[in-house]
Structures are given as structure tokens and as C-alpha cells.
Design a protein around this nucleic acid. Structure first.
Lengths: 157, 157
DNA sequence: GGAATTTACTGGCATATGCCACTATATTTG
DNA sequence: CAAATATAGTGGCATATGCCAGTAAATTCC
């Protein structure tokens, strides 16, 4: 009762995730080397490669990112010729995101750096906890979670 | 071996945390109501109140945030008279961050909204896993983690 | 088939974060 | 004490993200 003033990190999941995100952003970016490409950009390129020419909408959904935010984030990558937008043939509203040869090459180059960072992460946290953490975070990022979270508020709210 | 192309979320801790952070940012912000104050701002105000007039440096460290990033983030809060900077008496380089009466009041108003969001989170993930997750993330955000992460790279790198 | 509605983006504005260069103030050194 | 160095912030620039208000194209409804 009297301890509500305790450090917010101990009680707020959102703040906890955010703060950890800042720390990891730093650590992984450092580990990525002077590659001029950020961790966020690397993961975006990787996701684009994985999805094979997704529309911006599809990519945004996979990234759990706002569509316009994605659009903004893609700008510097397009400017640097790592990514290109090609209009969908069927739906002329949609634009598909595609890695340029340069983009594909840059992504491949950085895989080793990323693996090293991830290796260190696993070494420090432990492979078990590391995997478990990613599973939990994947659930939190899922639509199921968002729906359940919304539903949990419908009643008592 | 052939499955290196698998979804990055399943393997990258940094991306996982970041993606979850986006989702929770959305969910908590919604739960915070139309309070014109973001979840990030609420947690910042809360941390300032907890630390009792910290210097920007101290606050940045607690937030695991870059000093200049903190400065930028404080700007809108200062503009809106929720926070003020007061020069330290001993060290004239330092400026202490203090909640204004308005800031303190706004923070208190939002505690209930935050608690509701956190209640939902715990309800969906389970109180046990929720607490465990925060512990893990607190470790990841700690200096110990950063040092261990760096040390893990010194040898094989 | 044409109007109403939905969908996929774009552009503008605002916050969130970080890096680097620079300034002012302390602290350390010779 | 003065010079060298370290520390705390500030300002400018760049990316990361989100909201809202259009715009254009597709889909749904008389």
C-alpha cells in the first residue's frame, strides 16, 4: 500500500520493454559495426526479404508498425537504393516493397554481425531464457494478445 | 541449416523487444485515455517523481537513455509546464529536473489509467509470467548486462 | 452503372531517440 | 595557480514512430 512509489520499471511492463529496447538497440547497433545501417534497418531488410515483395500494408502488419510509420522508415532505405517500391499489378493502390540487389547484398553482409550480437545475447541471458523471452514477446506482439488486452478492458472499464 | 530464412522475430532478441515495444506502446497509450499525455511521458514523469529532482544525467541513466535524447524528450513537457529545470547549487553545470505542481497533478491523475492497463496486461499474460518478464527485462536494461554483453564479444570477436 | 464506403498510401506535424560538435563548468596535474 | 582533461548540457541533424487529413483506386450498395 505504501510502496506505490516504487520504481516504475518493477511494475510497468510497457516501460520495461521500452527501456530494454533502448539498451538492446544500443548494444546491437554497436555490434553491427560501422556498417552505417541500423539494427532497425537490418531487421526491416531481413523481414522484407523473408516476406518476398510484400505490400507496405503486409509489411507494416508483420512489423506491428503503423503504415505511415513504415512509409517514413522506408524513405532513407529507398533513398540509399537498398529498397524500391513497385506498384502491384492487380491492385493499383498497393505498392510492393522489394530489396534491390544492393539491399540484398547489404543484408547478407550484416547477417554475420547480427549473429554475433545474438550469440552474445544468448551467452549472457542463457539460451533457454533467451528463447523463452522471444516466445513471450512474440505473443505480446501478436494480434491475439491485442485482442485479449482489449477484451480485458471491456468489462471492468 | 536451410532454415536461416525463418522469420527474424523468432531469432532476434532485439527485434522481438522492439516489436513488442511498439505493440505495448499502442495498447498502453490507448488505455491511458485521451489524456494528451503519452505512455512514455507518463513513465518519465513517474520516474522524475521517484528520483526526487535528479539531474538530467541521473535521470538519463535511470531511463537507460542518451542524455541528449532525454533533453529533447523533456522539451515538450517543459513547454507544457509539467516539468522544469533548475540549476544545481553545487555544480553549476548540472540542471535538476523537477515536476511542477501541474506535472505532479497530471501524473497522479493518470496512475489509475496506467494501473488499469497493467491489470489487463497481467490478466492476459498471467501475473507470474508478467512479473518474470519484467525481471528479465530489468536485467537486460542493467549495466551488468551491458558489461557482460561487451565482455562476451571481447574474446571470439 | 454510379454513389457511398473501404482500402492503401502519401504528406505534414509531433514525439522518441541517438550521434556529434560545441560551450560552460569542474576536476586533475604539473 | 594555470593548463589539460573530464563532465553536464545544448543545438543541429537523422532516423523511428504515430496520428490525422487528404488522394486515388477498389469494392459494396442501391
Amino acid at each position: 500500500m505504501e510502496k506505490q512509489e516504487e520504481n516504475i520499471w518493477a511494475h510497468c511492463s510497457s516501460s520495461s520493454v521500452r527501456r530494454a529496447s533502448r539498451q538492446l538497440g544500443q548494444l546491437y547497433d554497436d555490434a553491427m559495426g560501422l556498417s552505417d545501417l541500423r539494427g532497425t534497418q537490418f531487421s526491416l531488410l531481413t523481414q522484407i526479404g523473408y516476406l518476398q515483395e510484400p505490400t507496405q500494408k503486409e509489411l507494416a502488419k508483420a512489423m506491428v508498425m503503423d503504415l505511415s510509420a513504415l512509409g517514413h522508415t522506408l524513405k532513407p532505405l529507398i533513398r540509399d537504393d537498398l529498397v524500391e517500391l513497385v506498384p502491384d499489378e492487380k491492385d493499383r493502390r498497393a505498392k510492393r516493397v522489394r530489396l534491390t540487389p544492393t539491399g540484398r547484398a547489404r543484408q547478407l553482409e550484416l547477417v554475420a554481425n547480427w549473429q554475433e550480437a545474438q550469440r552474445r545475447f544468448d551467452a549472457v541471458l542463457g539460451a533457454e531464457k533467451s528463447a523463452e523471452l522471444r516466445r513471450t514477446l512474440a505473443f505480446i506482439a501478436s494480434e491475439n494478445f491485442a485482442e485479449a488486452f482489449a477484451a480485458a478492458g471491456k468489462k471492468g472499464d
